[in-house]
Nucleic acid binder design. Structure first.
Lengths: 212, 212, 212, 212
DNA sequence: TAGTAAACGAGACGGTACGTCATGTCTTTAT
DNA sequence: ATAAAGACATGACGTACCGTCTCGTTTACTA
């Protein structure tokens, strides 16, 4: 009676080969793991995947975007909102999860992607959309819960607080490049969360600090 | 009677030309400003400086190190320890100074250098030695002063605290890429410094937070 | 009652679109004029004609053959046998006509086609059949008339004589690439035609020449 | 006492490697023989010669010029002016020599070069300078001798006469593509040379022919 | 006053990857 | 069956830099 107008209406022309798409992503991922972003070449992916460079260029505008997609297609470990009884514990959970993701090979690749993003806006958009913003939004919603629950002072800027929580992780990923010990993360979280905690007598200390 | 053993003993052979060294650094700096790290090539520097590629390779092991040196030779704005009456205010001063240095073109170059460092250990060493560690050590000494002065709790890890203070700056430099508003930095500093402040009753809140 | 058996019996399926065929030939011709054989591409013709590459490949085996067809469909100026009173004058007329056809853009295209024919036998066959042999046969029949009429010695090889008459035209088309002045053609024709003329006393000179 | 000022003064910089130059020309020649002009690729030459594409592009502007050079470096068979007692016999000798050179693989390569020249002016210049003009000048000087010796009419255009002699050879090389039988060349030569011979009674026949 | 040793310019060289172009084949929907 | 659309593997293109090399020249120190 009615044709489905929301189905992906397909025009003429040979449809995109999903096998090829997957082969490219798989090869890209493997190359990333083996050689890192430095040795990640479109030609290399083409060779390894058995597809043509042109095919890759048709669907991915730059190597950074391809690498980002390849990462995503393998580690689509959506970290679910824990929604435990304590919002601050949830925040800490997010940080631990990020640190875990930054450890091991994926971490080096992520660092390489962020590096690539410095000179390629396509890559920047891709990693922001796929890897950065997503977790930040999760953090934001937990933070809002923490404020609503009275665990965090309501007068802080949520964005700034998220910067304070997540910034050090990336800092260490790209500059200090040491393993992420759980203790370090707990200390970090404690510092910041205590700084924004809705405490009984924050006034005195804050006043002291606020002076310049 | 004795020749000065601490003077740079020079052997035979033509001595290194300082004019060439400067011309290379100047050209490198200009190229960095104009084209960013992405367009920064050894060949480009050689052309622009009128020197030979070989000469550059003789003295600098990689483009990242050269770029780092070029930056340093132009912005050697050593930020002196303010040593004001308030150590926490001094810390905030360091952060403001870093944010200022990260704004404008130097910031983009610094981001490019950190990017380069992800795949070139020479560059990593160079920027750590010249651009990162220096300020961190400054921060460390101020922090020790703050602890000694009773403004910061003595049981924290100084390294972790410095991560918490500096990390967000680099995070924003490389990922959020927005201008550094002074207000944002103040908020950041306040959050962390309050979190590590030697307050009257930190126990209760911390206890709450520490639970998982 | 009866279907016409001499009409082009049509099988099942959609008949070939003549509009498409013409559009392709037209586009091909235009592209040839604009870009010469060097810029003549199947893809270009497909784009310009609005047809699909597949359609072109279905009907033409190679770009050379297509170009040949395109030329033919636009310049089908069949040069009729003049059949004047003098056969040698007719031969000269054929040469003038060829020179005229070789001048202007068609000449460049013809040169391009001959070039293409060096590496593509399909093109070779096409231009031989359509552009070369036709005129040669015309030349041959006139030459036979000239022999029959006693204007040309009957003991010569007609093929060789035609080579001598036509060869220089192609030589100039492809190598000397100067304009074809009528005077030059007349001189050429005179040299050869006099050399094969049934003259009163050719013996002496020929004898001289024949010695090695 | 004096330094030789006429020696090839060498500027600074690493001198061009003759071994590389030769390896490239050798590989180019072999590829030409094997695959003809159609399969003659810069990449192919680079692979086979073990040199880099860039090196080839540094010294040769296009594949046509490279092919031309490669041919020349292998067949530098300068045909010497025979200077026999009979100038017309010498002319015939030149034609035979050209026909010989056009037979076999070199002929196909020459045809390919002329084809390439249709769309590449660099190639055109190269083959004109190296392969065409040289023989033509030889032909011209013999022809002048023939005129001076009274064997050829002095009122003809030498250029046109050379077109008449050489044109058919190239015509056959590129279009008729049959083997060059010696008899055919002799017939050709006889036709033209007789047409321009300083004969006893050319008037009558020429008059007949000259009419239109 | 040589001789030697290193710095320096110039530029050739073998490479790698780039991003683009055209090829000819294929798979699909629409006539 | 024919046509348009467009995906695909292939292979060469010409370019940009890479890092190394081989030169001739310059500029010191040293024997």
């Amino acid at each position: 009676m009615m044709d489905c107008p929301d189905l992906p209406k397909r025009g003429p022309g040979r449809p995109r080969s999903d096998a090829t798409r997957c082969a490219i992503l798989k090869a890209a991922y493997e190359l990333l793991e083996e050689a890192g972003m430095a040795g990640f070449t479109i030609e290399g992916v083409a060779d390894r995947s058995g597809s043509a460079k042109t095919t890759i260029y048709r669907w991915w505008p730059s190597r950074g975007v391809l690498a980002s997609d390849a990462m995503l297609s393998h580690y689509q470990t959506e970290y679910p909102d824990p929604h435990s009884s304590s919002a601050v514990a949830d925040l800490r959970g997010v940080m631990h999860h990020m640190a875990e993701a930054m450890s091991g090979p994926q971490g080096r690749v992520l660092a390489g992607l962020i590096a690539e993003a410095q000179s390629c806006s396509g890559t920047e958009d891709a990693i922001m959309a796929n890897l950065i913003t997503r977790r930040r939004e999760l953090g934001r919603s937990i933070m809002e819960r923490a404020i609503a629950g009275g665990q965090v002072r309501p007068d802080i800027s949520i964005d700034t607080a998220l910067d304070a929580l997540f910034g050090p992780l990336f800092y260490r990923l790209m500059l200090n490049r040491m393993p992420f010990e759980p203790g370090w993360i707990d200390q970090l979280a404690e510092m910041v969360l205590q700084g924004i905690a809705a405490g009984p007598a924050p006034g005195a200390a804050a006043g002291t600090l606020r002076q310049r």
